[in-house]
């Protein structure tokens, strides 16, 4: 039981740190790109905004589906937490190492579609609704490449456990063994957390998309939930492709944190540099380019894994 308590505590700390880090990084990159000077404000802006939103009143629309509207941000956050729970942050942390971890991660990330769709649909308003349907198109397109590159990462380990996948990278990381894997995975991460060029459901041309009608605590919860999904996805990227906790000199959990940080910086950077792509263009690219590439990745990885036996 203490193991479980320790695991839950570690998960909570990791999530909290991760979400805070995302807010700091986002503000930092934004200030840097905008040409503002850098101040200590980057550390406080996120928490201050969260407190401000908690003081705001929630908004009402005409005949919303109130239950689903309240449920959506909670579900998004829970899925982020569940996704992170499948990843052993260090070999010593016992809770996470689930024999089918990568499938559980995939299931959690598939349900993100439900959370975002409900968030947009239940407001009973035009722009959120368009955002919701946009996300369905986006999610159905990135879902397949995501599943395929994660399966490729699992092939050399001959296991669906994330811990085993990390251990299988002792000699060489998957990012080198499967050069196609990480780039495809990072595209799907941007889709999962609808960040950067794939910020389609919450886009400015929809006046905020699925969050156009949301204010106050619900908006704060939505932003936090989105960051949690981003953190979980980045941590999975670090585990599946960058060797997770493996690394010399430093303790495992530090390596894990550093690798996750690198991927987070990449995604947050893209959010301030890369223009939002058109839904249609992304769907075409995902089906015509990403899925075939991901299939090649699966075949090559399987062949290499068989050859190594």
């Amino acid at each position: 039981m203490t193991d479980v308590a320790a695991g839950v505590l570690a998960l909570g700390v990791a999530l909290f740190l991760g979400v805070y880090l995302v807010s700091v990084l986002d503000r930092f990159v934004s200030d840097l790109v905008a040409g503002h000077g850098l101040t200590a404000n980057v550390f406080w802006a996120g928490p201050r905004r969260a407190v401000l939103l908690l003081l705001q009143q929630p908004s009402r629309t005409e005949r919303p589906d109130a239950e689903a509207w309240a449920f959506a941000p909670a579900l998004l956050g829970a899925l982020g937490a569940l996704g992170l729970a499948t990843i052993p942050l260090a070999p010593e942390l016992p809770l996470a190492d689930n024999a089918d971890g990568i499938v559980l991660f995939g299931a959690a990330m598939a349900l993100v579609m439900v959370a975002v769709f409900l968030h947009g649909w239940s407001a009973n308003s035009v722009f959120p609704l368009i955002g919701a349907y946009r996300f369905v198109a986006l999610a159905l397109s990135y879902e397949m490449p995501l599943a395929l590159v994660l399966i490729s990462a699992a092939l050399p380990a001959e296991s669906l456990s994330v811990g085993e996948i990390i251990r299988s990278q002792t000699d060489v990381w998957n990012v080198i063994r499967q050069p196609l894997g990480l780039p495809i995975y990072m595209v799907t991460v941007a889709g999962l957390a609808f960040w950067g060029p794939l910020r389609l459901p919450d886009a400015a041309d929809l006046s905020g998309g699925t969050r156009a009608e949301v204010s106050g605590p619900a908006l704060a919860a939505w932003e936090v939930g989105r960051s949690m999904v981003l953190v979980a996805a980045a941590a999975m990227g670090a585990a599946a492709f960058l060797g997770g906790w493996l690394g010399p000199w430093l303790p495992g959990v530090v390596w894990m944190g550093l690798k996750t940080l690198v991927l987070l910086v990449l995604i947050v950077w893209s959010g301030h540099h890369l223009a939002r792509v058109r839904t249609e263009r992304f769907v075409v690219v995902a089906w015509v380019v990403l899925i075939p590439l991901a299939l090649i990745d699966v075949f090559l990885s399987g062949w290499l894994a068989l050859a190594a036996r």
């Binding site: 598939a110 579609m113 999610a139 159905l140």
Partner: peptide
């Protein structure tokens, strides 16, 4: 769970 999330939305 994984399949049904997509199926039901579709």
């Amino acid at each position: 769970l994984l399949m049904m999330a997509g199926e039901m939305t579709i």
